[in-house]
Design a protein around this nucleic acid. Structure first.
Lengths: 247, 247
DNA sequence: CGTGTGTTTGATGAATTTCAAAGCAGGTGG
DNA sequence: CCACCTGCTTTGAAATTCATCAAACACACG
């Protein structure tokens, strides 16, 4: 017995609430039948315990993943064992996009807390995308957006001092939590100072000091991993008016 | 009168010699007819004068571009006018991938010298990719590879000191020239020191000093924009044994 | 209650930026 | 052909930021 389109959209949402599979599929006009097919992609769930790897660099690409619950870090390891954190993912965000280039994962994805993801079998996704052009288009967009984000990151590392980077980091999380329906001024960072530091190109001690500076200016209240933003505009000004000038 | 497949491949190569359109299309089995259709994508050429913009941030995405001759830099401008260089493109490389996410270009592409590109009309490409799944797959890969590259860049900015970054930069160009069939030990950098600095998250003076250091160690010979690599292995050792340790 | 992991703060030193000035190359016009 | 710009590069010295080393602290957990 065929469901109505609205029912099916609802079903899809329920199957993977908060997932960016939605991001991938929903903004576009699909028929009920098409949605039904998308549905087959994302029926599974996968739990990942804190500190466990969802995948590791070198693993063959089987699936992309959408975070349902919890959070992850992605990192690359250099030959001599140093870790560079390349990103953090919260519910609704995608993991594994960098594996498409070689059919092998290029980084490690580690759960920062007990988490749950939706695997999206990549071969199926490609096949389905072939039949649904707008899905393909959206996949392209998701990939491209990742590139834009990375460029913003490069901008940050190239032009900002430590306090500005930290402010930008907090604002970034604030904004991402906001778009996912959580508070933009009050949230918990699940990663350690050292991981924030790696991500921002700074040492953990510098992160601590940066936190102290922002606190002294009355911009934030941070105790442990609990963040409250007290003066959103002040933080933003720090970031836009950042310190280097055209020579 | 139908050409043979080999002829058509040859025709395609001639139409856009050195273009990464090839990268996009050739590694995969296509029929002669399919190649003929690809051909229709890339018949045009576009000249861009030194210092002129191929596109600017905010421009609507019409085409992706493959560099045929010359070179480009891509950069983003922050509100207060600072420029952050996000990449350099030499013949055979693609421009414009970051525009797919919003249908508008996210950065400026400026010619570093008189140059020539192949525009690839994006709507046509998507349409054609839809009909040729392996083309679609390759487009995905090109996008994904860009993400991997950016992550390498983040790694570099996070973990390397100025001399190491410069060495990595030179090796990167060496390798890219090599894969395009040019000398890997002797090439010309078309950008200014300031632009290298922006890209590497350093000031132009630091680039100059870094060059002097590498020269003093007998690793390279650099006069003006002319680069000769004297000791490739020495350079590589600098990069892999880079300075920061796990705490 | 100890142990281990993660965080904070201080003191020191090294690396990089900043400011300043001089040098160099390529192009233009006299 | 030379003199003179202009834009880019190089080098030096001083100032600043951040990393490093070290020690104390906080907290969760067995």
């Amino acid at each position: 017995m065929p469901e109505s389109r609205a029912d099916q959209v609802h079903h899809l949402k329920a199957a993977c609430s908060n997932c960016s599979v939605l991001e991938l599929c929903l903004p576009i006009g699909l028929t009920g039948q098409e949605i039904e097919r998308l549905d087959t992609l994302i029926v599974q769930r996968l739990k990942v315990r804190k500190s466990a790897a969802l995948y590791r660099a070198g693993d063959p690409l089987r699936s992309l993943y959408a975070v349902r619950i919890g959070s992850f870090k992605t990192s690359v390891l250099s030959v001599d064992g140093r870790e560079q954190v390349t990103g953090f993912q919260i519910p609704g965000e995608m993991l594994g996009l960098d594996a498409i280039s070689t059919d092998r994962h290029a980084c490690n994805a580690i759960a920062l807390e007990d988490s749950e993801v939706c695997p999206i079998h990549f071969a199926h996704l490609e096949k389905l995308a072939h039949e649904l052009p707008s899905l393909q288009h959206n996949l392209n967009r998701v990939l491209s957006r990742e590139i834009v984000r990375d460029h913003d990151m490069l901008m940050m590392l190239g032009n900002m001092n430590s306090d500005e980077r930290l402010a930008a980091f907090l604002l970034n999380f604030s904004q991402r939590f906001h778009t996912r329906g959580y508070s933009s001024s009050n949230f918990v960072l699940k990663m350690r100072r050292e991981e924030i530091g790696s991500y921002l190109g700074l040492r953990l001690e510098t992160i601590c000091r940066g936190i102290a500076h922002l606190r002294d200016q009355g911009l934030v209240e941070i105790s442990g991993r609990n963040v409250t933003i007290r003066n959103m505009d002040g933080l933003k000004q720090l970031v836009v008016g950042c310190h280097r000038h055209l020579s």
